[in-house]
Design a protein around this nucleic acid. Structure first.
Length: 289
DNA sequence: AAGTTTCACAACCGCGAACAG
DNA sequence: CCTGTTCGCGGTTGTGAAACT
């Protein structure tokens, strides 16, 4: 017995959303909050399936979404977290609350994966020892980042303006912040989630601790992920993690999740990520990307 | 200038997990 | 427990714009 479709295929509109559809969807969510997506097409009259409505909201219309260039810091976090978690885009997005998992996934697939692949292919060990290499990398990353979706405008912002009240983006008319849009955090299958409504990494971490007690100590884990201490000490810790991961990656459970195919040379990347925070001076080096 | 290719992003699809009855 | 329904995630595709020939 096959799984029934999420919606009737007949009469369902596909393809890009129009501003009118966006407004209808936002109006509905403003009134009812996100969730119960099944009811959205019926209630609003939108000729879209429930999935499409949910996706449009979470990836585009939801307030607080940051669009445009990924900063070098964001790129660094994505690379780092991807190496750590694999393609757990929702988990990665929980650490970049202004970015959607779809955005991060797209950015990874269109930019970072290629660059890292080239980096691995072309990496000269001598160059790898030169931290300036990574300063150049970070500079190139920033300069090459495209301002995607700007032409379409930030519909979310436009709608906010259209609705005429900035308060609506964070607080319901009656002052109840849970009503809109913070309700995102109230309905979630996971016990732990972030302001973006995503499961936090805590959701995954217990598996690490339970299934491999010799894995990363909690404080070290936080240090690796937090990026709050981008200094020598943090670097030493994260480098330690890199070697530790390499020596203990034959286990089961989350261990396998941590084994990432084609994972970048993490310590090199870390060097790059850390160096980029300490200097603006970039010397001219051979093109590696 | 026109045709073709490549790129970047938005959106869709299918699967599995969670949940309710 | 079992079954059906709904939701969320990750992989993939579609499409318009830009770059190239």
């Amino acid at each position: 017995m096959g799984r029934p479709p999420c919606c009737e295929k007949v009469g369902i509109k596909k393809g890009p959303w129009t501003p009118e559809e966006d407004i209808i969807l936002v109006s509905y969510i403003q009134e009812h909050g996100p969730g119960n997506w099944r009811a959205v097409p019926t209630y609003t009259g939108l000729l879209r399936c429930s999935k499409s409505c949910r996706l449009r909201w979470t990836n585009y219309l939801r307030p607080g979404i940051k669009r445009g260039n990924f900063t070098t810091h964001e790129e660094g976090m994505i690379i780092h977290l991807q190496a750590l978690l694999g393609n757990k885009w929702a988990a990665i997005a929980s650490y970049l609350p202004q970015r959607t998992d779809n955005d991060i996934k797209n950015y990874w697939n269109t930019h970072l994966k290629k660059k890292i692949s080239k980096f691995q292919t072309n990496l000269d060990p001598k160059m790898a020892s030169d931290s300036n290499t990574y300063q150049l990398m970070s500079k190139n990353y920033t300069e090459n980042s495209s301002a995607y979706a700007l032409s379409a405008g930030n519909i979310s912002r436009l709608l906010e303006e259209w609705m005429g009240s900035s308060a609506k983006t964070s607080t319901a008319p009656n002052g109840n912040q849970e009503e809109f849009p913070s309700i995102m955090s109230t309905k979630n299958n996971h016990t732990e989630c972030t302001s973006s409504g995503r499961p936090s990494l805590e959701y995954y971490r217990p598996q690490i601790d339970q299934e491999n007690k010799n894995m990363i100590p909690t404080d070290e884990f936080e240090s690796i992920l937090s990026f709050n201490n981008l200094n020598d000490t943090a670097f030493e810790k994260s480098s330690c993690y890199s070697s530790k991961r390499g020596s203990e990656s034959s286990g089961t459970g989350i261990d396998q999740n941590l084994k990432v195919e084609n994972s970048p040379p993490l310590s090199f990347l870390e060097t790059w990520l850390l160096d980029e925070t300490s200097s603006q001076e970039v010397m001219e080096l051979p093109q590696i990307f």
